[in-house]
Design a protein around this nucleic acid. Structure first.
Lengths: 128, 128
DNA sequence: CTCCGTGCAAATACTTTGCAAAGCG
DNA sequence: CGCTTTGCAAAGTATTTGCACGGAG
């Protein structure tokens, strides 16, 4: 375990960084966060690892906000609010996603439904 | 009217192209569609006009699919399905968006909610 | 003459990739 | 040694922008 910690030091730091924040970060943000403590970290590594995590299902992509891809360490399906002004992303805990729809929609339309995202857009409390 | 038709020939063609298809096109797709009939059309013009239409609310953006922005001439809120394999976008007519949520969510969280999108991901009938 | 839409090409900006070096077993 | 991770920089790709031209009023 300690061995692993050494070998995957940067990878773990990147994953941890995404998992432990609620800002729904971009690759660039993660890089900026870790750069001070891991001075020889490069942006390419961040991109590579985020892509890897996404593929492994350890994190999810929220899509792009203003042309920049945003990630979420919280894999559980939940509802997001995106501010069109400042680009911040918030979780809307109070709203539930109709998970049950996934299966029935798939069956009705002849599709395989893996995922479902519900997103609201507008202005956050600071920007409005 | 005829005057206008001349002056805005390309603009109208671009808008019409997005409005009259169900493929939820990208800028590139629109360009490819129109290029044969409007041989001196340039891609920059397509981008410029799509951005304009989006701003005017004549079309909406569905966000990016595989890094490419997709548009929808149908401005009415409706549910989408995106195939992760081929990138096609389908309308799910049968599912309704809980429009009423917008106001209550805004009020509860101190937000201004303008928009709301519900999207399912998976494999389409051809790709599964 | 002035305004607006446009072609064209250069510029941006985010992201991906190739390759050599370094780390771990 | 062999395999994986990484830094670095170059390449890639979608999109935006600057500028000059041309048509409409």
């Amino acid at each position: 375990m300690e061995q692993r910690a050494k070998h995957f030091k940067k990878r773990d730091a990147i994953l941890n960084c995404v998992k432990c924040t609620k800002v729904h970060p971009s690759a660039d943000w993660v890089f900026a966060q870790l750069k001070p403590e891991i001075s020889n970290l490069s942006l390419g590594t961040v991109y590579r690892n985020l892509a890897l995590f996404k593929e492994q299902g350890l994190i999810v992509s929220l899509g792009t906000v203003k042309g920049i891809e945003r990630f979420d360490g919280n894999v559980d399906p939940h509802v997001h609010f995106i501010c069109n002004e400042c680009g911040c992303v918030l979780d809307l805990e109070s709203v539930g996603i109709p998970e049950s729809l996934k299966e029935s929609i798939g069956r009705e339309n002849g599709l395989v439904v893996n995922n479902c995202t519900l997103t609201f857009n507008g202005l956050c409390s600071q920007c409005k």
